[in-house]
Amino acid sequence: MSWQPSASFNNIRARAAMLAKIRQFFAERNVLEVETPLVCDSTVTDPYIESLQLTSGDYLQTSPEYAMKRLLAAGIGDCYQICKAFREDESGLRHNPEFTLLEWYRVGFSLDALMDEVGTLVNLFLPNKKVEKLTYQEAFERTLGFDPLAISLNDLKAKASQHIQLEMPDGTLDDWLNALISLVIEPTLGKEGLTFIYQYPPSQAALAKLTKNDRTQSVAARFELYYQGIELANGFDELTDQPSQAERFAKDNDERQQRGQKRIPIDQAFLTSLAQLPDCSGVALGLDRLLMLNTQSPSIQDVLTFPDRQ
């Protein structure tokens, strides 16, 4: 029976050093460290995220987003949290069903200002990296030569078949865009430096505000950060509009039902609190992946003491 840790002592020490540096980074900026429960009575409706459920019916959190926004709505101000998050069936070289997130919120920050701050923090662990900001549209146009915000499903399928061998008869426009970004574009991102992708299709807004790009197309004020083809962070200019949020939850649940998944009861406390949420930008960063890159480890298992072995 193998009982030894899967991470080296060096990597275990590198994690401790990383946590200390992050706490110092936020202390210097007067961002408050907070804690919220891991066990929650409701969870996300996102059709592509499955929560682990306890026999009591409670869920293990998939991210601390809802609870932290309730704190923000109550007036806590700038805050961050380092915590465990859980997602069922996510296991691989870059995934473990239990992982560590750093999530933080900045009141009054634009998405652009938050991207800059993320770049500064990541630079502590991946020093001297050039920062590049690309819109989702530019990333597609540059790599694949078409506008992802203006393409029809049929044209998209035809384009996709030139790059990937994938049968997805019931695939939606977003499924195909996701396939292309994660299988074709992502591996080319952040080769030399940190690459931020921003302005996502409005259908992939999740909890971000909608805005217009310079071609007056509707886009989501959302970003993702990549380094060496690895997704590190996801940020939003946070949606503060209660009715829009309620609509997105309902749409998620309809999609879940269509896909044969359970409907998720809406988190009413979160939804109610949104009316008080100040304008803010927030981001979640995967610390295990940052540590992988920091220690040049090929697998997430190399930085976890006892990873899930399925």
């Binding site: 996102d46 592509y48 995220i49 996510e90 296991s91 691989g92 070289l93 870059r94 995934h95 061998q165 994938l166 695939g171 977003d174 499924d175 996701n178 396939a179 970004i181 994660s182 299988l183 992502e186 992939q204 999740a206 993702e224 997704e231 996801n234 979640a284």
Partner: peptide, 26 residues
């Protein structure tokens, strides 16, 4: 290889050897 964007559909990129031809398929 398990490939999943934080938000969005997950995929598995699989390499297999065809046992008839010996060829590797992706």
């Amino acid at each position: 290889e398990f490939v999943k964007p934080g938000k969005g559909q997950a995929f598995n990129r699989v390499k297999l050897r065809n046992l008839f031809s010996g060829r590797v398929w992706e």
